[in-house]
Simulated scan of single mutants.
Amino acid sequence: MQFDFNSPEPIFIQVATQIEDAIFTGAFQEGSQVPSTTEISQQFKINPATVLKGMNQLVDHNLLEKRRGRGTFVKSGAQEIIIKNRQEHFYHDYILNLINESKKLHLSEDDILTLVKRGYDNEQDRN
């Protein structure tokens, strides 16, 4: 984990985002225990209340669960929740903008699909 203390993004959000990314990439497997609030706060010199706030955000989003006396664990199904959330954000952040811009450029649906296919083909050629 790395934190940018000069970022306008609050540290607790950075904590939540980095733990979520670790779940998404499989670094924290479903059912596994995540580092404790104390471990994270000591390792990165962050206020424990700040770390707790970030972790509680993930508990509220059903990605983590607290087990009394045992710690905090990645919930079953957490990775799928993250994927669905990111797909929805992708739709709103990219697809809707793509459609709006394509209408301004008088591009048809077929034109867009052709451009997307061309992008995929070009990417495969680079790899």
Rank of each mutant, 00 (worst) to 15 (best):
E20N: 05
R86C: 09
R67D: 05
F44H: 13
P10D: 04
K66I: 12
L98V: 07
I82G: 03
M55E: 06
H61E: 15
N6L: 09
H61R: 15
S76T: 12
D60L: 07
Q43L: 13
L107T: 05
Q33C: 11
D111N: 15
A78F: 02
F5G: 03
E65P: 03
K84Q: 15
I82M: 09
Q43R: 15
G31E: 10
E109S: 11
H61W: 08
I11V: 13
D4F: 08
M1R: 04
H92G: 01
T114K: 09
L58G: 02
K84W: 08
G77V: 09
G31M: 02
A49F: 06
R68V: 14
K53W: 04
N85Q: 13
V51G: 01
D121M: 07
M1V: 05
A78C: 04
F44R: 01
V59M: 11
D125S: 08
K117M: 01
P48E: 11
D4A: 06
D111A: 08
I81A: 06
S41C: 06
F24R: 08
E65G: 08
N97F: 04
D4W: 02
I81K: 09
S32A: 12
I40L: 12
V15H: 00
Q42D: 15
L52P: 01
I11Q: 00
N127W: 05
T37F: 00
L105V: 04
V34D: 00
Q87A: 14
I11D: 00
I11A: 03
E88L: 10
T25L: 14
Y120V: 01
E65D: 08
G71S: 10
G119H: 03
Q2F: 10
D110K: 13
E30G: 09
G71T: 11
S76C: 01
S76D: 12
K53L: 10
I23H: 01
P35W: 04
T38K: 11
L115C: 06
A22M: 08
P35Y: 07
R68K: 15
V51Y: 04
G71W: 02
M55P: 01
N6H: 06
